[in-house]
Design a protein around this nucleic acid. Sequence first.
RNA 1: GGCGGCGUAGCUCAGUUGGUUAGAGCACCGGCUUCAUAAGCCGGGGGUCACUGGUUCAAGUCCAGUCGCCGCUACCA
Length: 695
Amino acid sequence: MPFSPRRRILVTSALPYANGHIHLGHLVEYIQTDVFVRFQKLRGHECAYVCADDTHGTAIMIRARAEGRSERELIAEMRAAHLADFAGFQVAFDHYGSTDNPANRRLCGEVWQALSSKGLVVTRDVQQLYDATAGTFLADRFVKGTCPRCRAADQYGDTCEQCGATYAPADLVDPVSTLSGARPEVRSAEHLFVTIEALHGFLTEWTRSSGALDPRITNYLAGHFLGEALRDWDVSRPAPYFGFEIPDAPGHYWYVWFDAPIGYLAATAEWCEARGQAFESWWGRGSAGTPAEIHHFIGKDIVYFHTLFWPAMLEAAGLALPTKVRVHGFLTVNGQKMSKSRGTFVLARTWLDHLDPAALRYYYAAKISGGIDDLDLNLDEFMAKVNSDLVGKVVNLASRTARWLESTGLSASYPDDGGLFAQAAADGGEIAAVYEEGDFARAMRAIMLAADRANAYVDAEQPWKLAKQGPEAAGRLRDVASVALNLFRQIAVYLAPVLPGLAEQAGDLVGGPIHSWDESQAPLAGLPVAPFKPLMKRIEREQIDAVIAASQAAVAEKTTPGGSSMDMTPTTADSGEPLAAEPLAATCSIDDFTKIDLRVARIVAAEEVPEAKKLLKLTVSLGGDATRTVFAGIKGFHEPAALVGRLVVVVANLAPRQMKFGLSEGMVVAASGAGATGVYLLSPDAGALPGMRLH
RNA sequence: GGCGGCGUAGCUCAGUUGGUUAGAGCACCGGCUUCAUAAGCCGGGGGUCACUGGUUCAAGUCCAGUCGCCGCUACCA
């Protein structure tokens, strides 16, 4: 047995934001991180998996305000939900903290101090619009107004989409806050910046030769950021802001992306404190003892935070740098982006209500190869693969042989198996190597190969015939079943990082709890065998359908105001999410309202605009000969053919607008937003006629 | 349109630094088996590796272009 030194490995997943529930997309990351951690522990290394809720920022503040409660109440509730979801999927953190904890405040201060003392913090005035009604500064995207150059209406605060002009939000003519509808005023606000350019040389070197990054990531960074001077990073926000106030800059708060990664440090610190360990032994540099490895698992959307800002902060603070930043892609379901309207936006909780979390863990493991490509959850394949691999091959191995050993136990010495156990034991090195690389897909393939060989062995030995031959074949029967059960347990060891539940059940069946990878290297003999209990159930089509249906229902519940009149059950309270996502506009007078002429119209023609991704070209009739051409952003949600003949509501006196594909002479009213991807057209009650005005 | 990614059997994917008749699982077809959660075993059909051109003794693998798809973004008035 080769000597393998005991490594010290700190592992993180990205901090989930306390503004929403965990869904199947999040789980791609947490499950793969958990598999990696369980693998390292099984190998006998000291490994800690730390994570935390990311709790600060404007979005949390606005949402809490809309729900009429404190931010801390909101994040406490979300934390409990997150923890329950993770536990359900057997994602086992060694410590789960919060960026709102004292440890994080302290460490933010320390990192800040280091940046300041190195002269990396500068103060600059930023001209920003302020919404006095909402009592907050407005980010560019929260301001709209008229372009100062071409007078186009309703442009965002940074650039004009009509003429391409760029300007400051304060330059807009008639600016409006999208939060309250109030007219914002220009205020000069002081912001604090980190002059990250001072670390440009370090970052170029680190991204290239530290070994922490995939070459593709290195190239991406070199091409997009490191090829020119790095811009100062704006790390403060003026009050009001839900976060930590900066100690030496009253009225200024650390921007959420400053304190979030420090949450990794804080969670480690809390974990260390609870175990009497030294924080410095993990994040310090050059301390005594085995140096720690630091592995960050992240999605491809937050690469530059983890590969530029974060190492820069660590470098400035004199802390250890990441050993590996492991980047993964996004989840698609049935080949497409998760969709609420298609029912493929599945919350962790919804899955747990209908399906075995272990099945998803296995499926993800079988598809994760350590690359940054997106991962597709094909539900048909999911069902076939889990049933075939886990139920048909692995579990079946125990299911078809354990019963013959209930009374006798395993053979007293391990019988001749033609070298099967030894072969699978030898494969253990390769399987471990690919686990280490994060190529779980390859590991699963190798393990299934062992399961195939084991089943072929059972088939060749035909123990069911031996069972019928009476006492003289009993010894042979016992041997064959002992081999099969040992091969099963060996596979359970290899799968233990992915399927901790199965490993536990395998231990219950024979041999006791599995603690070490080394248990795959030597067969068991002479031990009792417990009565066989079903280890895993087949996945039925109905369960999948139920998950989709429940996911669609969850969306309907959130986006249908007041529920429908056909709903006999007392409605559970509607979620405040849609409203929070788009707060009410400013009060308008009845005169203002009557300026808008809303009419019932009939769609008389609807056609695709092949080059447009979101637009359909509609011809609507207001009755008689009055028709209008309207481009509506509903492509993908409505089939053109199905729209023809249908009554809708249009804004009939809207100024015509020249769009890329033609002139649009009105607007079809539809509901959308709140993070939902659907677009819901409004229909009048039966009897309404085209041309009728809405009063 | 801009940026990024991808195009290998019906489906999901492997194919290591370019090197013998391109692989797996599922699905499908045929046979065997009946211990097992309609599970298992053996065999089979099926691919001009998107297309075109180039580099090379040799390309799925490198380069260029074309087409198609996906994601972010813009066109949601």
